[in-house]
Amino acid sequence: MIGSRRVLLISGVLMICAWTLVPIYLVALGGVGGASTIYAWPKPFWPASLSIGNFTAFLQIEGIWAAMLRSVEVAVLCMILSLLLGAPAGYALARFAFRGANLYRLMILMTRAFPVGILALPLAVSFVRLGIYDTVFGVALMHTALALPFAVLVTASLFVGIPRELEEAAWVFGCSGPGAFRRVVMPLAIPGIAATAIFAFVISWNEVFAASVLTVRNKTLTADLLTLLSEAPLQSQLAGGLLLILPSVLFIFFVRRYLFALWGVASR
């Protein structure tokens, strides 16, 4: 009786794993296989010939490579901006009881009820006027608006998790305020801050709507792929899709330990 239940559980778990992984495997087949695989019928479930060289050469021709580099720039900028703006606010929420703290927190939470990406529409108009339309910086600004509330809440919980006593001990034993932050708080917060940074990166890396609305010629990878949908052959699309997926899978691997802590906190 117990044994059969166990079997049921294990097969269920494995089925969900397959449900997640098999589609990624298939898009990889299409992406790396090139044109011959795309038009094959019936489709082979095993790669006939596998060549990364062809794959990358092909990406360069399609301009996907340049778009990807732009995407990386945007995501890195978004990551830096989110942390620079968000981490101090998170620290303030965690360590100070100040008038308006709850109001601020509520405001941050409220952004969640809004489809923030949609705001790229009026921003496109403003960005044209400011001369940052169709630039890496403009897209990064918009993406920071998406990632910032998340960065604030997560860093706040990170700093809450570092006992105040540790900081006080540093003060008592001769540290100034900034000194205690540098010597005690920062070393302890670094892993969590890195995880937050990676999340900001992924949020930006994956964003399609705002990136598409805010760029014309200097498209990011997602924006570029969106235009390719109606123009380019399927293999370019799949190759681009694969390129989009791979870093995310790696990132999730690196931050998996923090995933639940981060979202557990972000959900309160």
Partner: peptide, 30 residues
């Protein structure tokens, strides 16, 4: 005066031993 200028030491309720430092560096901290 801020705590660091008062010439005192303190033992905290939850010890506040710095988790990222070895015992040696904890004792040497002050």
């Amino acid at each position: 005066l801020p705590p660091r200028s008062r010439g005192l030491a303190m033992v905290f309720q939850n010890y506040a031993v710095f988790p990222h430092l070895r015992v040696r560096d904890n004792i040497a901290f002050g």
